[in-house]
Design a protein around this nucleic acid. Sequence first.
DNA 1: CCTCCTTGTAAAGCTTGCTTTACATAAAGA
DNA 2: TCTTTATGTAAAGCAAGCTTTACAAGGAGG
Lengths: 67, 67
Amino acid sequence: MKNRIEEIRKERGLRQEELAEALEVSRQTISSLENGRYNPSIILAFKVAAYFGMQIEDIFIYEGDAQ
Amino acid sequence: MKNRIEEIRKERGLRQEELAEALEVSRQTISSLENGRYNPSIILAFKVAAYFGMQIEDIFIYEGDAQ
DNA sequence: CCTCCTTGTAAAGCTTGCTTTACATAAAGA
DNA sequence: TCTTTATGTAAAGCAAGCTTTACAAGGAGG
């Protein structure tokens, strides 16, 4: 799974901490997602998509079985 | 999170076990998802959507913060 | 140089997603 | 009645997502 969180966050001029607060997660969670340390839960993916006003599929890119 | 897995599975004439096999998870996982015992990982949500040829948002319904 | 701001990352711990094994039950058919 | 098929669910255990605390490092500005 790749994701475009960092890209979209920066487009909107947000800091990791601001995004974290808006999504009700820790800053480390945002950092970890942006750097691919783990995948979000589906709940968090929905929150991200809702906050950005986008579809999950436009933010998170599933690349087959591996990862 | 609600989901339409059971509904779509039945539309397509599949047993839980067949769907489980196709998605490479256990039958209990399908049963648990259909009965709302827990939410899927985002990877599994992507697999379900890909298998059904639908968008995640059309199968899984996020209902705000609770659940 | 010093300080602040932003980000990266690690460790420990809790919670949740998923597995295997196992048993129960209802429906359908011989 | 007996058996088979499909489904529900529980328990134990491992893996992954997320938290808090903590520290490191680069860039910008005084």
